[in-house]
């Protein structure tokens, strides 16, 4: 039986699951669309990742990250629940020697993380606006009728990129349409869009930050060679896209789970069998006070297994009491 660690990154667009062995080798990885149904995505991810490994495995630790980290942690029984920034940082440090800058573009988030002497020294995330993230690229690709996989390759073919306004996704879209109507070809518009997104990223997140090499580009959008090329042109240096760039957050979780295991030598993992459990989510608005919290209740096979969303902890705490009484 082989010992391994499980990492799950539940993001807005994709849910990523990774199994890592004790020597930090990636045994299996799954990149699946969240499609607004994180519970289904986690179940699908677990099932697929398990089916990729033929031998018997023993999961010694589990970590979760991403905006759905608490949901995933509740489902699988996680040992470590961490934010995406720390997870991405730890993964990059381990897989790229001496990395000093991480550029990460995901579905709804973009971040820049600066590392010095092997620790995170500064970071920034996009503010209230999600312009220039993966979901925007997806939308534009769909509008132009190009599969998102071919988007980057097409940008590389551009001879004379057009200039697209990059500050705001709505401006960018109308600018693109106007340029199309003038007769510019698709390659040039797409390259122009890549340049605009990179310009926007560096202006907003990179503002005032010292971007030193080696630079790593990760997250789902790193698969887009057009954006990578635009980054290289803008920064005037080579950019590394690690082989597992799309699941780096999940890999970071595996690494943190491994460390937790070394310290504590125990795991709360509930086993792969949970993929057969039925999960239901009920939401209700608590009207006991003026806060009007939106409380979420998660049922596993009809039993309430978690509640959150309440500011006062009443629903959350009530559940704990009920569980204690049962036990």
């Amino acid at each position: 039986m082989k010992n391994c660690y499980l990492g799950i990154d539940v993001g807005s667009v994709s849910t990523n699951v990774v199994l890592m062995d004790e020597d930090k080798g990636i045994m299996a990885k799954v990149y699946t669309q969240t499609q607004g149904k994180p519970i289904e995505a986690v179940k699908r991810g677990l099932k697929e990742v398990r089916s990729q490994v033929s031998e018997e495995v023993r999961v010694r630790g589990v970590g979760t990250t991403g905006s759905g980290r608490h949901l995933a942690a509740m489902m699988v029984g996680a040992d470590v629940i961490k934010n995406e920034i720390t997870a991405h940082g730890i993964a990059a440090i381990n897989f790229v020697d001496g990395v000093k800058t991480i550029l990460e573009i995901g579905g709804q988030d973009s971040k820049i993380i600066l590392l010095r002497d092997g620790i995170i020294s500064d970071f920034a995330m996009n503010t209230v606006c999600a312009a220039g993230t993966g979901s925007f690229l997806d939308r534009q690709a769909a509008r132009l009728g190009i599969p998102i996989e071919d988007f980057g390759e097409m940008a590389l073919k551009s001879q004379a990129p057009v200039r697209i306004a990059g500050r705001c996704a709505v401006f960018a879209e109308s600018d693109m349409i106007h340029k199309q109507q003038l007769g510019h070809n698709q390659e040039d518009i797409i390259k122009g869009l890549c340049d605009a997104l990179v310009r926007n990223f560096l202006n907003n997140l990179g503002k005032g930050k010292e971007i030193l090499g080696p630079i790593v580009f990760q997250g789902g959008v790193a698969a887009n060679v057009g954006i990578k090329k635009s980054f290289e042109e803008a920064l005037g240096t080579a950019i590394l896209v690690p082989p597992h760039h799309d699941v780096m957050g999940a890999i970071g979780c595996c690494l943190m789970a491994q460390e937790y295991d070394m310290k504590k030598n125990r795991t709360s993992f509930k086993g792969f069998d949970i993929v057969h459990s039925g999960y239901q989510v009920k939401g209700f608005e608590c009207n006991d006070c003026s806060n009007g919290c939106e409380v979420i209740e998660i049922l596993r096979d009809g039993q309430v297994s978690a509640r959150w969303g309440d500011k006062c902890g009443k629903w959350n705490g009530k559940l704990k009491n009920e569980v204690e009484k049962l036990a």
Partner: peptide, 12 residues
Amino acid sequence: GVNTRLEAFIDM
């Protein structure tokens, strides 16, 4: 969004 940024900041 706020939680992620705060947690990451404290971690750092």
